[in-house]
Amino acid sequence: MNKFTISGSPHIKSDESTKKIMYGVALAMAPTMLVSIYFFGFQAIRVLVLACIASLFFEWVIQKYLIKGPVTIDDGSALVTAILLAFNLPSNLPSWMIIIGALIAIGMAKMSFGGLGRNIFNPALVARVFLLISFPVQMTSWPKPEGFSIGLSDATTGATPLGIVKEGLGAGKTMSQLKPEIPTYIQDLMGQMGGSMGEVSAIALILGGLYMLWKKIITWHIPVAMLGTVVIFTSILWGIDSEHFADPVFHLLTGGMLLGAIFMATDMVSSPMTHGGQIVFGVGIGILTVLIRVWGAYPEGVSFAILLMNAVVPLINKGFKPKRFGLKPAISKNS
């Protein structure tokens, strides 16, 4: 007969696992992936495949030969990072830049902190910002969503809606003058606009978000706090002067707002641990994003905002503790 096992309680374990969470996120990203392939054709497939292979390869190399620890590339975390990275890139980015991006994401942002669970910043965003600062031209020439007709050769490029507005307002035009140049809300929802691969289709992103909420991979706190703040902040600006500030719906649906709110800011590793902290985190991202978008030098500010708030997460974790049981002072006698 076997030897009995002695261990501390509990003796049962739920079927949750890191793998399940990571592949759940990957699955939630599937609609967005399909949409990006639909709009950007072979180029999108190239970026996705290359990012995945490079990320997994770097993770494997570093775990095996640098850290010399157990290799855990099958846990799905590198895959999620890779897909998120691909979502943040324009589909016509040269291949070698994608590989550098993967190296930065995995090597610098994740492994140098000690691997899964230890990184302060969202790896995919670190890579995006690194590439954006290093190769500003390539990273801001967005191919038009023309589907498989693009082929692998040069595509026609254009600015993102945010870029159009930023430039237009900077040149002294008003919102109503810019109206014909920017896509309609319907186009925003579907994804017919310029932009990085993952940020174009709002519907696909929301679909993924709902799936993750249903599977309890994320909670509503961060996305709602972040988007709510953006809506309130931009509504105030728009209310003050609708000619010089874009409307809140435009802010919500364009750029990386939804991608950031649903997939980036909710990254478990780099977001706060309590619901209270998560709301503060979301609000902070919202405010910073609008500040950068409206007054900053860059047309898009979601990635910077998230990275900045990532940096204060340890502080938020210290300040916002969960509601402790039994610390409510008074007990109402007639309850």
Binding site: F4, T18, T72, G115, L116, G117, M268, T274, P322
Partner: peptide, 28 residues
């Protein structure tokens, strides 16, 4: 059963904070 009685391999904490959500005493 034998297969139920062992712990699973420990992985790195991914700070998902599920332990905080389920703690009935509001601890971390």
């Amino acid at each position: 059963k034998e297969e139920e009685s062992h712990r699973k391999t420990e992985n790195a904490c991914i700070r998902c904070s599920k332990c905080t959500y389920v703690c009935p005493m509001g601890l971390e």
